[in-house]
Design a protein around this nucleic acid. Structure first.
Length: 361
DNA sequence: AACACGGGGTA
DNA sequence: TACCCAGTGTT
């Protein structure tokens, strides 16, 4: 349990030296940007449960359009969701925008302490620690999945990583190890090691700067620790989707703010229970009976997607609707407009299967 | 504590 | 197929 000062010093020295030499040149790390807090935050928010390699393109696109905290706070939710399109976990995007507004109103910018950051929407323990340490040089840890794996192996932490005991042990280690002079670099060095060498399931110990200090390796158990997280089985979800064409445009509906694909645009969709009627489901898909007169045509598109918690099936039906009352959450969009909207990837794929007339796009 | 929440890469 | 990813918010 104890972390001797000599061991702590050796870990810091070796890992920081390795990081200085081996860190990947991520766009938010380029020196000309410095540790600009807004950019650090944006990168951290996008990286939640999302591999860094998949974040880079979205990060550049987002920053080009909303380069400052002020521009983000002033942007509409629709625009922010559109810039987030394809990244998933869209609640992150809405929280990002609200946090920008709150930070500006209450602090005149991003606050600089981990406690004040933690109070903003979308800032959990990890993101608050990451931004505080990287952007504001606060001596606080930032424990993500990488750090959990690295520290679990270094100290041979037993037990499921989601258990309270293991989490507490890792948190204590992370707090004790933070380098007081370079807290942000230290936290990033731990993450970098976990992302590039100390990977699951088979770590590349031969290149690891702290392999000789690793208790899991000493015991020959580096492949076993930490144990895999147990996940509940995925449940099936079938969504009937109404593909309604008019004058080369497709009818899109904005989804409710909560739940799957919250706040994004897509074809009007409704859960199709096993053996249920797609027509009945779609007629009730929108509030106010907006689609009460819908008539179902043939199935013309289908998409299967595996999400973390869902086996998702989208079934697209060609549909006719009667007159639509003007509705805040409805719009007709041609292909070009659809490119600019926040639409989940699965629904984009479904729309991509639909052949439209020559007036489209 | 358990669950909801995207999407894609990897072995 | 199963697991994981620079996690957070809700119940």
């Amino acid at each position: 349990m104890t972390l001797p000062p000599a061991r702590r010093a050796a870990l810091r020295r070796r890992l920081l030296a390795w990081y200085d030499a081996a860190a990947r040149p991520l766009p938010w790390r380029f020196p000309q940007h410095g540790a600009e807090p807004y950019r650090v935050w944006l990168a951290e928010a996008m990286s939640q449960q999302t591999q860094v390699s998949r974040v880079i393109a979205s990060y550049r696109r987002f920053l080009a359009r909303l380069p400052t905290l002020e521009s983000l706070a002033a942007a509409g939710e629709e625009e922010v969701l559109a810039l987030w399109s394809g990244l998933g976990y869209y609640a992150r995007a809405r929280a990002l925008r609200r946090a920008a507004q709150e930070a500006l109103a209450r602090h005149g910018g991003l606050p600089t302490t981990v406690e004040a950051l933690r109070a903003l929407p979308g800032f959990g323990p990890y993101t608050a620690g990451a931004v505080a340490s990287i952007a504001f040089v606060r001596r606080v840890p930032a424990v993500d999945g990488n750090v959990t794996r690295v520290l679990s192996r270094l100290e041979a932490v037993e037990g499921a990583p989601e258990s309270a005991g293991a989490r507490g042990r890792v948190a204590a280690l992370a707090g004790a190890l933070v380098d007081p002079r370079r807290p942000g670099d230290w936290n990033q060095a731990l993450m970098e090691l976990g992302a590039t060498l100390c990977v699951k399931p088979v770590p590349r110990c031969e290149r690891c700067p702290v392999a000789s200090l690793c208790r899991a390796r000493a015991a020959g158990r580096e492949r076993e620790l930490p144990p895999a997280r147990r996940r509940p089985p995925r449940r099936g979800l079938t969504l009937a989707c109404a593909l309604v064409e008019r004058g080369g445009r497709l009818l899109l509906a904005r989804r409710p703010a909560r739940g799957l694909f919250g706040g994004l645009w897509g074809p009007p969709a409704a859960e199709l229970p096993p053996g249920g009627s797609a027509e009945a489901a779609l007629r009730g898909a929108l509030p106010d009976g907006a689609l009460a007169g819908l008539r179902l045509g043939a199935e013309v598109a289908r998409v299967d997607r595996t999400l973390t918690h869902r086996d998702l099936v989208l079934v697209g039906y060609h549909c006719k609707v009667g007159r639509l009352s003007s509705h805040h959450d409805l719009r007709w969009a041609r292909a070009k407009e659809r490119e600019e909207l926040g639409i989940p990837s699965a629904m984009r794929a479904l729309l991509g299967q639909v052949e439209l007339g020559p007036r489209d796009g």
